[in-house]
Simulated scan of single mutants.
Amino acid sequence: MANLNILLQNFIEYLQLEKNCSQYTIVNYEHDICEFFMFMNEQSIDSLNNVSYQDARLYLTKLYEKRYAKKSVARKISSLRSFFKFLLRETHVQSNPFSQVSLPKLEKRLPEFFYEEEMEILFQSIDTSTPAGLRDLAILELMYATGIRVSECSGIELTDLDEYNSVLLVRGKGNKERYVPFGHFAMQSLQNYINNGRNQLMKNQKHTYLFVNQKGTPLTARGIRYIFNKLIEKAGNSQHIHPHMIRHSFATHLLNNGADLRAVQELLGHSQLSSTQVYTHVTKEQLQKVYLAHHPRA
């Protein structure tokens, strides 16, 4: 088992240094591979080189028996496929037993988003008479203006804002950086928060993070989700909602209004165009509504 742990550590270093994966991704890889090591122990497989295609198929069956969601099963098999691919490259194994294992077909779920009228209700529901309210409006305006993730929002520092050019430096997944423009509404809310809200919330804390909590310390992604849930409750919306819907809304509204798909890909920080194309399904639904509403023989 010691040898397995050394190989796993080598793989993690490869993910960190060569693939530049995020810590979240690395933790998932490590968990999935360690789970497979336990399976190897149960099956008395003493070496990764002795893992066969039949063993890989058996492992897939075991995952289904544990009632994992299809998405989780697909991720675990994908993790092991990548692990063995790395081992094959480093000549630690002679074959990749997971290369031919079929991943479960995932249901294609359309991204949930807010309609423009619903976004307006959210904006109007925020009480901006308090420093916290100014902060909450600035968060919502900036997330909707840029389509950034909650984790990206929590990591913004004051120096990341270029107020003169209305551009934000965003540090995304795998520490990849991108510049995203934002508009007048976001700029106005940010300036109001920085000038009239942030200093009061900071108390005696000293740091450069843009968004802070009531104690003056940097606001975490979890803290932003909590704020968002409170906004939803206040706006009187009872459906199941998550902050990522702001990002979905950003992409959907851009495409509905004629934005180029590749431009939206850049703004979202997607490395693959296929990740952005999911939003075209939503816009096709919008186009159908327009067609049915306006075509004389629809």
Score class of each variant (00 low, 15 high):
250 F>Y: 11
45 I>C: 11
55 D>S: 14
94 Q>E: 12
184 H>T: 15
127 D>V: 10
24 Y>I: 14
28 N>Q: 13
27 V>W: 01
63 L>D: 03
65 E>P: 00
290 V>F: 09
147 G>I: 08
155 G>P: 01
139 I>A: 06
260 D>V: 06
93 V>S: 02
77 I>S: 12
147 G>R: 05
26 I>N: 04
208 T>V: 04
231 L>D: 02
113 F>Y: 14
187 M>V: 06
170 V>G: 08
217 T>D: 14
195 N>D: 13
64 Y>G: 12
234 K>E: 07
271 S>A: 15
197 G>E: 08
201 L>C: 10
232 I>F: 02
115 Y>D: 03
103 L>Y: 02
264 V>P: 04
228 F>V: 09
75 R>F: 07
153 C>E: 01
216 G>V: 11
59 Y>I: 10
64 Y>N: 13
108 K>V: 10
51 V>C: 05
243 P>S: 07
288 Q>N: 08
32 D>A: 10
86 F>Y: 10
234 K>H: 05
34 C>V: 03
20 N>F: 03
176 K>F: 07
271 S>G: 07
52 S>N: 06
5 N>T: 14
282 V>E: 05
94 Q>N: 07
246 I>K: 13
205 Q>E: 14
45 I>A: 11
198 R>N: 12
262 R>G: 08
273 L>I: 15
14 Y>W: 06
132 A>C: 05
187 M>N: 15
72 S>I: 10
291 Y>S: 09
160 D>W: 03
190 L>C: 13
137 L>T: 11
282 V>T: 09
21 C>K: 13
209 Y>I: 07
134 L>G: 11
108 K>R: 12
197 G>H: 02
156 I>Y: 07
228 F>W: 05
32 D>S: 06
138 A>Q: 00
101 V>R: 08
47 S>V: 02
239 Q>D: 15
275 S>W: 06
19 K>I: 09
159 T>L: 13
161 L>T: 13
38 M>D: 09
23 Q>V: 15
40 M>G: 08
8 L>I: 04
261 L>T: 05
